[in-house]
Amino acid sequence: MTKAWLLMRGDVRVGELREYGVDQPTFLCHFVPGPGWESVSALFEARAVVQGPDPDGSRHAEAFRPLMDLGLTLHPSDGGAPLGCFRDCILRIDGDMARLRY
């Protein structure tokens, strides 16, 4: 059974993730934007461009902080408990692809 999650910001659906594979320990997903995507997409894009070595983690932390402040949650389609993004799981979205690790 393929897993799916709704990405939410409060009561606003930001998008949907649909698993298509696993690259342990990461779920590989297709991402379908929702009505709230436009308001957060620039933050995910800024995070996606941070590449390469980051010995003290400061560049990655700087890119993740605004995303953490959004209070995003992932709601599993099977009715399981929601996951707090960047608290219970790490989520990366780049275009129509997403990577989820929890």
Rank of each mutant, 00 (worst) to 15 (best):
Y20E: 11
V22F: 14
V22W: 13
V22R: 11
D23K: 15
Q24T: 15
Q24I: 15
P25H: 07
P25G: 13
P25I: 06
P25Y: 04
T26D: 08
T26W: 04
T26F: 05
F27H: 15
F27L: 15
F27C: 14
L28N: 02
L28T: 09
C29E: 09
H30M: 15
F31S: 05
F31M: 06
F31G: 03
V32M: 10
P33K: 01
P33M: 01
G34M: 15
G34K: 14
P35M: 04
G36M: 09
W37L: 02
W37C: 03
W37G: 10
W37I: 13
E38M: 05
E38R: 11
S39R: 12
S39D: 14
S39Q: 13
V40E: 04
V40S: 01
A42R: 12
A42N: 13
L43D: 03
E45D: 12
E45H: 05
E45Q: 12
E45W: 03
A46R: 06
A46Y: 04
R47C: 11
R47E: 09
V49C: 07
V49N: 14
V49W: 07
V50A: 00
V50D: 04
V50L: 01
V50N: 10
V50C: 02
P53Y: 01
P53E: 08
D54E: 10
P55Q: 09
P55E: 10
P55N: 03
D56P: 09
G57L: 07
G57P: 03
G57I: 04
R59A: 10
R59M: 04
R59S: 07
H60P: 06
H60V: 08
H60I: 10
H60N: 12
H60C: 14
A61L: 07
A61Y: 09
A63R: 01
F64H: 10
F64C: 03
F64L: 15
R65H: 08
P66D: 11
P66H: 11
P66Y: 11
L67G: 04
M68F: 15
